[in-house]
Every structure is written in structure tokens, then in C-alpha cells.
Design a protein around this nucleic acid. Structure first.
Length: 282
DNA sequence: CGGTTACCCTGGATGC
DNA sequence: TGCATCCAGGGTAACC
């Protein structure tokens, strides 16, 4: 469930706790999440290093160590989360960062163990790994780059927006909000959007994601919390996600929940009146 | 090769 | 009350 706004909230919360700090012991509690290296190697490489800064790439968290001595990349995927507050080890803790000269501990927890933890020797290696599986960040992509990328596929617009190789950061919740704000049906063919529709879509990507970052993301159950354990506020004000049968905030007609073509097993919420499958005649 | 589907994993909600 | 089933969905692999 962490999409771009939730991961951005994690990164902003981690910065004051980790940036510029010297790591003490780093401990992996669950080797299942670790890819490309073993626990002993990872712990040896990371422990005792100074954190230079925390970055985000799409839905990934990058913990960049000083003097290009390594990068820890964490993909929270569905249920990964960071915790600063609990003094004792929380449930589902998979990775622990202790800090030198402090009692502060940063926990990475992941109930469903879908998340991934990777070590990269250099920032260059980490950037290559990001670029291999992610397109431009959704908050940075230009209108023309987005338009060009959507032209390349005959898929529906919703699964295309959620394809991290097209642009990085959008998942199921924000795809629905963005398409509502753009007045586009989720099954519109990505390559057939008109220039005016591409304008609306590009504006909506930035507008919706910025609004969600301001609200510190979305929480619909205990899985996602900010690093202080607080709920994100986005779902208190959102238009579509989780609101089947309730009135569309624009036209008042009931919001529909469906499984759309190309996205089996995931719910899509939209307004059939405001988001018609084809362009209405003017 | 592009598009679609199955599967990974676990906890909470729902159904009988 | 208890057990089985379903559902959440990010991402990748395998499939057609």
C-alpha cells in the first residue's frame, strides 16, 4: 500500500533520525527480505557507517552512506513501515538500525514480508538498479515525457499509470484519484488520449500526489503509519478509493467499484458519469 | 513481443 | 466458537 506519498512521508520522517548519524549495529531479523547478499555480509557492511542522507526513488527508500561507501535500498511494497517510537522491538520487525551514542532505534517492520532489502556498493550501482526497474519519478516527469510514454502502449490507462517502468510512484489508490481528477475512464486506451486529456492527466498526477504528501499519505488499516506511528490523513478527504456506492463529489451519482480489464484482482473506483468510457460530444 | 494472469506473503474480515 | 475462505495490492515471473 505504500505508494509515493506514503514513502515520501517515511523518508521525511527518517531524515531527522538518521541523516548525519553514525549507525551502530545493524541487524537483519528476517533473511527472506534480503536480496543479493546474506545477513552477515549485509550487517558487516552497514554497521558503523555514517548516514549521509535519505532519498526516495518512486516507492523505494534509499539510505545513502557517507563517502559513497554503500546504499541500503528498501522497498516497503504492501506492508513495510518504519517505526521510531517503540522502545521495545515491535511485531514483525525485520531490520533494526541502532545509533551510536544514543538509545534511538529505527525499526523496519513488514507484516506480510513482501518487502525487499538490498545492498549496493556504490550510489552509481543503486541508481542503475533504480533505472532498470523504474521510469521517471511521478513528481518529476514532464508533461511531454508522460505523453510520449503513454503513446507506446495499447493497455488501459490505469494499469499503465501503475506500471513503475512507465513512471514511478503511483499505485492502486492514487491511480483512481488521479483518473477521477482527470475525468478519464480507467479503461481508456493509454495511447489514444487527446492532448487536452494528457494535459489534465499530467496536472492531476502532480496535484493529487502533492495533496497526499501534505496529508502524510493514506492509512486504511494498521499496516501504514508515518514513522511516528500516526495515521496518514489522505483518506479522510479523498474522492474515490474505498467509497463505492457513495456520491461522487462532483456530480452526486454513486461511485462504482469494479475489476477492470488488465487489472484483475484489484478494485477500481470511479464515477461512470464524470469518467465516461469514451469522450462525450461537446 | 506486448498484454494478461498467477503467485508471493500474512493478518484481518467475512461466511457457514 | 471455530474453521475455511476471501481480500488487500506492489511487483515479478510465467504464460498466451
Amino acid at each position: 500500500m505504500p505508494e509515493l506519498p506514503e514513502v515520501e512521508t517515511m523518508v521525511r520522517g527518517l531524515r531527522p533520525a538518521l541523516a548525519g548519524r553514525l549507525l551502530g549495529t545493524v541487524k537483519v531479523h528476517d533473511p527472506f527480505l534480503l536480496e543479493g547478499t546474506n545477513c552477515a555480509t549485509f550487517e558487516h557492511l552497514a554497521s558503523g557507517r555514517k548516514v549521509e542522507r535519505i532519498d526516495r526513488s518512486g516507492k523505494w527508500v534509499l539510505i545513502i552512506l557517507e563517502a559513497d561507501s554503500g546504499v541500503i535500498v528498501i522497498q516497503p511494497r504492501m506492508t513495510g513501515a518504519f517505526w521510531l517510537v517503540p522502545p521495545d522491538r515491535p511485531e514483525h520487525a525485520r531490520l533494526t538500525f541502532r545509533l551510536q551514542g544514543s538509545d534511538q532505534v529505527v525499526w523496519y517492520c513488514d507484516a506480510r514480508r513482501l518487502g525487499k532489502i538490498r545492498w549496493h556498493d556504490t550510489l552509481g550501482d543503486a541508481r542503475v538498479a533504480c533505472a532498470r526497474s523504474q521510469g521517471p519519478d511521478a513528481l518529476e516527469i514532464s508533461r511531454d515525457d508522460l505523453a510520449h510514454r503513454l503513446k507506446q502502449t495499447s493497455r488501459s490507462i490505469k494499469p499503465t499509470l501503475m506500471d513503475q517502468k512507465v513512471l514511478a510512484g503511483i499505485g492502486n489508490i492514487y491511480a483512481d484519484e488521479i483518473l477521477f481528477a482527470s475525468r478519464l475512464h480507467p479503461e481508456r486506451v493509454a495511447s489514444q488520449l487527446k492532448p487536452a486529456e494528457l494535459d489534465r492527466l499530467h496536472a492531476a498526477v502532480g496535484e493529487v500526489l502533492h495533496r497526499a504528501v501534505e496529508a502524510e499519505g493514506s492509512s486504511f488499516d494498521a499496516h501504514y503509519r508515518t514513522v511516528l506511528g500516526l495515521e496518514g490523513g489522505f483518506l479522510a478527504t479523498n474522492a474515490m478509493y474505498g467509497r463505492a456506492g457513495r456520491p461522487c463529489p462532483h456530480c452526486g451519482n454513486p461511485i462504482v467499484r469494479e475489476h477492470i480489464r488488465g487489472l484483475i484482482g484489484r478494485s477500481t473506483y470511479y464515477c461512470p458519469r464524470c469518467q465516461p468510457p469514451r469522450v462525450r460530444r461537446a
